[in-house]
Amino acid sequence: MNALTLFGLCGSALVGVGLYGLIVNPQPLRKILAFNMIGSGVFLLFGVVARRGAALGMGGDPVPQALVITGIVVAFSATALAVALLLRLHEATGSATLGATDGDGAPGV
């Protein structure tokens, strides 16, 4: 077993742990945390793929590494939007839960 298999297993484990957190935690903030964890697990798998592609003096395939960097920034913006939405919801309603999913309230104009 080389080190890369460890990283691959770790990435898969993180996806699993994040998925558990997503399903089990009803609070949106914890769900946001879980999403970030799943995302970082996926990025780690990208890193494994990059390392496997090491060649010609480069420590890893640079394309997956670039994809990870882009992905981290995109994930951060998604988190920022989700947090802003959650805080606004809390400010407007006093609660920070998603509540029931039936046709919520009166439709808008």
């Binding site: 990283f7 780690l44 890193g47 494994v48 990059a50 420590g59 890893g60 590494q65 960097i69």
Partner: peptide
């Protein structure tokens, strides 16, 4: 860092 992806 251990994956040799310093930028990441």
């Amino acid at each position: 860092v251990r994956l040799a992806a310093i930028d990441a």
